[in-house]
Nucleic acid binder design. Sequence first.
DNA 1: GCGACGATTTGCGCTGGAGCAAACGCCGAC
DNA 2: GTCGGCGTTTGCTCCAGCGCAAATCGTCGC
Lengths: 239, 239
Amino acid sequence: MMTAPYHLTRRDVAGLDLFRGLPAAALDEVLVKTQCRVLARDCRVFNQGDGHIRAHALLKGSVRISQSGRDGKQIVVRFIAASEMFGAMALFTDRRYLADAETLTEVVEVSWSEPDLLNLMTRYPQVAINALKVVGRRIQEAQYRVRELSTQPVDRRVAHTLLRLAKQAGRRAHDGVTIPFPLRRKDIGDICGTTLYSVSRVLTVWERQGFLVSQDQQLTITKLSAIERIADDEHTSPV
Amino acid sequence: MMTAPYHLTRRDVAGLDLFRGLPAAALDEVLVKTQCRVLARDCRVFNQGDGHIRAHALLKGSVRISQSGRDGKQIVVRFIAASEMFGAMALFTDRRYLADAETLTEVVEVSWSEPDLLNLMTRYPQVAINALKVVGRRIQEAQYRVRELSTQPVDRRVAHTLLRLAKQAGRRAHDGVTIPFPLRRKDIGDICGTTLYSVSRVLTVWERQGFLVSQDQQLTITKLSAIERIADDEHTSPV
DNA sequence: GCGACGATTTGCGCTGGAGCAAACGCCGAC
DNA sequence: GTCGGCGTTTGCTCCAGCGCAAATCGTCGC
């Protein structure tokens, strides 16, 4: 599970949204409080309900955040890419993780204890303000998802989901934009509130129309404009 | 629109989550920066997209926060009761209001400008940390709604919605818990992602069964346990 | 008192998409 | 090479609940 150690530098923490705009001295202080781990693929970073809460961020790799109810049904809350923070909301609510976090690739993960982070926020208010910015973006996104789920049909929701993932972490490839997470149909369904069957049907059609290619759980959007049209068109068919 | 002036005291701001735990001197400072308005029923506090952003809180009355897409479909993001803050996320995202806010009753509303609030947060980091707590609770709630919309049938969603409203602002009445917002069927539908028709059908059944009474847009839950059972039962019918 | 408007209820038909089951393709283990 | 497991595709059935229309009930303005 734990592999080679990773040598942490000031650059590493300086690149995180949470510590943007801090003076070098503060960054060094952050560095001291940072715990760093290297984790293999398919391994739990934390579990829903756990009480040993820390605030986390990724330096490398990707993580899936998912939430499940007692009925076994689960949703994917979000995918985390390098440089993003996660698991920090637990510190400000009921002091338990609200979701599961599982590595999708090998990752380098850093984290801070609750007292350390609160201490940093108190002495460098910019850290708290940065956190508010991150959380603000996420709440906006969550509300957007609520609206989607309430008002839009499955194909539009899938389209929005792909666009959001592409915007969050997409990489230009020779033939379009690649989404750098290993995505199963089930994951996509769990993000946008549908079943793996419906996702499969929708993607198959789009692939036939040349809007995207899907292989090995890697998805490349080759005709962004087409997907955007599907996502935004008030009525799916013009008529 | 603006009626009688309201005399603001230190107590008023001390009761807000945002300023919890501040020393008296700080509260006085907050007081100076506070703008206070009295608004009539059915009037806009701000509009989705507006750029003159401020952070708001209610001292009295209630407000409906709703969001609508170009297609006209709208959702209700939440209801705001006295002492709650709202509209503040705009300061930390794209500096436009993300939703509409409309008064449901006569209200007393206070607000702060962006520079004033950031200034306060910088000098009293506790304010930023308080804000994180509020936002954390809301993000948790938003994610919960996403999961509900993805996995649960209409009656369960309505039940959850009523319970959430009751928990947020419910008042003990002689015959149960009253939800103190003027609620139309459409509002309930817009909160939990269904139509006013479906809400009506569900509520009618529950009213016949004696779980609640509904009159004049006032809703009283008379049998909380029954509603909770509906909301939580893994399978709606026990078999 | 009367008409208009807003909220609610209820009947009914229709469909998006959930939820099986079955088949297929691919890869890694042995 | 063969087998088993995982992810995916696709056909088919079925129903929750959307959305329209129409009736009912207040309430407010005039």
